[in-house]
Amino acid sequence: MSKYYLNYLDELESEAIFVLREVWAQFENPVILFSGGKDSILVTHLAKKAFYPAKIPFPLMHVDTGHNFPETIQFRDDIIKELGVQLIVGSVQESIDEGRVAEERGKNATRNALQITTLLDAIETNKIDCAIGGGRRDEEKARAKERFFSHRDDFGQWDPKNQRPELWNIFNGKHFEGEHFRAFPISNWTEMDVWNYIKRENIAIPSLYFAHEREVVWRQDSWIPNSEFLVLEDHEEIVTKKIRFRTLGDITITGGIESDADTLEKIADEVSGMRQTERGNRSDDKRSESAMEDRKRQGYF
């Protein structure tokens, strides 16, 4: 066999770097959507590679729901300092205070859907023409249809049935004023690829991904962490378990799993044996069969 071929991780890396450089070349004012989760950390790491020895030429943007894991915010501030890039924060609390959105009511109320307004407002205010996200096609059935360069109209909406065809590696980022794009450099990565790569590159990630003793409550088939926002039901009780999180979202809706995986090696091993998808622990996706598609159409990540 010829020595001139890349293994699958190197090929995925090269593809993502190519996409990030295309974003930089085709847009005026792109940002990386940074949530502090592993996928946006990975995208940021790849951006570092794409522009080395120059620094990442665009800001990171965080949509802050106010319902954060404290570790995530610390991690975000550390990475901003290390990279020397600008941070833009869109605050859901401000959107609520300004009357742009209203808190959901009821037992499983979350701020998840409220993020859409905050995100679109931040995109408009900062004149962002491309928001780079860590979305992957293996995550969810609506995401399986995403393009690398995904068009959003001037209301920020996605029209999945009328997407621009994307052939070879020629990306068309042309748009009119007021419209924007979402770009997904790690579209072709699976959860397993992400972990194998994080392990290989030894990328720093928040401690939440590693198993620790935490206070949790059993709700909707997963362990929801205790926080100032948690309102206990009558039958519920807080217990201490060794928990880690497979994805990080709002602290109110992100369920953990019982685990002993406290190193990257153990996490990768654990993930390779998993029989549930990672979003299986996200109550925002359990609402209906097309929960993600509906949110994405409106402008969700």
């Binding site: 096609r137 293996d138 059935k141 399986a144 249809k145 999945p160 049935k161 997407q163 579209s187 072709n188 699976t190 397993m192």
Partner: peptide, 10 residues
Amino acid sequence: TIDVAYRYFT
């Protein structure tokens, strides 16, 4: 099926 969908396996 209306649009191209991408699937992954290893």
